[in-house]
Simulated assay, not measured.
Amino acid sequence: MLYLYRRKVSRGQGSIGYMFMIAMGLLFILIAFAFIIEDSGTSREAAMEHAENSSIKSQAVVSKSNLENFGLWNDDFTASLKSNHIIEVYKEGELVYAVHYENSTYREDVSRWSTANGLSFGEIYVKCIDGDLNACKFIIALQQGVWERE
């Protein structure tokens, strides 16, 4: 004879298990949401930095164009940084201009960028386009500076 045993289940006995599974699911969702928020924060910072760098590059391109329009840009000009926020501009080894950039937006960055000494304007522009923000700031300082013919 075959006896079927029925297990007697009282009501509400499985609800604790279901509540535990729901709590675990919510915990996983909360952890995933926290990671998404954290990633978007670093992405936002990276995006802001990229936007600032792009802005400096575009200012440099506009500054170069303005200098060309006034006849003050020559790819063969070489630069020499001097104290007191002065850039000496040479053509074929001869001093042709002194640029006073003390009122420039990036005067402190430019004064610390010793790499500019001996570089041609063309080389500085290539460095700017390649991502050297100090080169871009140098070009902006040239445009914002006061040019004196020597």
Rank of each mutant, 00 (worst) to 15 (best):
M1V: 07
L2D: 12
Y3W: 04
R6K: 09
R6D: 04
R7L: 09
K8S: 04
K8H: 00
K8C: 02
V9L: 03
R11P: 05
R11C: 04
G14Y: 10
S15A: 01
S15N: 01
S15W: 02
I16F: 00
G17T: 05
F20D: 01
M21S: 00
I22F: 00
M24S: 05
G25C: 00
L26M: 05
L26E: 03
L26P: 00
I29V: 07
L30D: 02
I31H: 02
A34D: 06
I36P: 01
I37H: 07
S40C: 05
S40Q: 10
G41P: 00
E45G: 04
A46S: 07
S54G: 12
S55V: 15
S55Q: 15
I56E: 11
I56S: 13
K57S: 13
K57T: 14
K57R: 11
A60N: 11
A60V: 14
V61W: 03
V62K: 12
S63F: 10
S63A: 15
N66E: 13
N66H: 07
N69V: 13
N69F: 08
F70N: 12
G71M: 10
G71S: 11
W73L: 01
N74P: 02
D75E: 05
D75R: 00
F77W: 01
T78E: 01
T78G: 03
A79Q: 04
L81M: 08
K82W: 11
N84L: 15
E88R: 09
Y90K: 11
Y90E: 03
E92M: 08
G93R: 13
G93I: 13
L95T: 11
L95C: 13
V96E: 14
H100N: 15
Y101K: 04
Y101G: 13
E102P: 07
E102Y: 15
S104M: 13
S104P: 12
T105Q: 14
R107T: 14
E108P: 10
V110N: 08
S111G: 10
S111R: 14
S111A: 15
S111D: 15
R112M: 06
R112Q: 08
W113E: 12
W113R: 13
S114E: 08
T115C: 07
L119C: 04
S120K: 01
F121M: 03
E123D: 09
E123S: 09
I124R: 01
V126D: 07
C128S: 03
C128F: 06
I129R: 00
D130H: 04
G131H: 01
D132A: 01
L133I: 04
L133N: 01
Q144H: 02
Q144C: 02
E150A: 10
